[in-house]
């Protein structure tokens, strides 16, 4: 899932200090799961921001509402009636959720409460690790289930660079394992080293502006003939 963390409070204050009525909108999706933008965190954001407003000799009325999923049009209508009473919105969704709110409520300034970090996994409560760069051409099949795009600091496709440390860590950090060392070890264990013996050609990064995905079976609905 998508992982995010709250922006520095001072940055949020700077964005919103000109407003008297602020609506903090949490998200029940990914950012809630990673403890950044759910009910509890949005409430905490309200408390912290109100405090900072007071410390700066200002007052603002801040309310909290949590939308089930901010990246979905059917859910974001939930705030249609209440948003009229507010000067601006702080959204604790990922970057996609913030943009859908901003698109739906065009006349309202919508500010991001979070920095969207990565697609990652839950290692433990509050501890997440990046595992996917959403490259659009999944490589995991030949790399033993370890992503070379994400987990190799140089996103190499054909084996390790020369910088692997003797303990098998990456040249960038001794705390980070060398992805290609791990790929080799795992493939060897599975008797699949031949997977990485032939040259893997350059990627098709499909880096052509904002992507659109039409799920198979839905083409006729969205593609005009």
């Amino acid at each position: 899932m998508i992982k995010a963390k709250r922006k520095p409070l001072e940055e949020l204050f700077d964005l919103t200090k000109g407003f008297q009525r602020i609506l903090c909108v949490g998200c029940g999706g990914c950012t809630s799961v990673c403890l950044a933008g759910g009910q509890r965190e949005t409430q905490m954001l309200k408390t912290d921001l109100s405090q900072l407003f007071r410390e700066n000799g200002k007052s603002a009325h801040i309310s909290v509402f949590v939308i089930e999923r901010q990246c979905s049009p059917e859910y974001i209508s939930d705030i249609e009636d209440m948003i009229k009473d507010y000067g601006c919105v702080i959204s604790a969704a990922c970057g996609a959720g913030v943009q859908l709110l901003a698109e739906r409520y065009r006349s309202k300034p919508v500010f991001p409460a979070l920095n969207t970090m990565f697609v990652g996994l839950d290692r433990s409560t509050g501890l997440y690790q990046e595992r996917c760069r959403t490259c659009g051409d999944c490589q995991l099949g030949y790399t033993g289930g370890i992503c070379p795009v994400t987990c190799c600091s140089k996103s190499l496709f054909n084996g390790p660079c020369g910088g692997t440390n003797i303990n098998g860590s990456c040249e960038v950090s001794r705390e980070t394992p060398c992805a290609w060392n791990e790929i080799y070890e795992r493939l060897k264990m599975q008797n699949r080293v031949e997977n990485i013996l032939s040259i893997h050609p350059p990627m098709d990064w499909t880096d052509k502006g904002p992507g659109t995905l039409i799920q198979s079976g839905y083409e006729s609905r969205y593609i005009k003939k």
């Binding site: 140089k154 996103s155 084996g159 660079c161 910088g163 893997h200």
Partner: peptide, 29 residues
């Protein structure tokens, strides 16, 4: 053709890395 020392070692630590192709692919190219 080499992959190059990672930018986090240098004097432009906030740079965006490229690594569009790797050194193996550069050799082929």
């Amino acid at each position: 053709a080499i992959s190059g020392d990672h930018h986090s070692f240098g004097n432009q630590k906030n740079a965006r890395k490229v690594y569009d192709i790797d050194s193996m692919q550069m050799i082929s190219l």
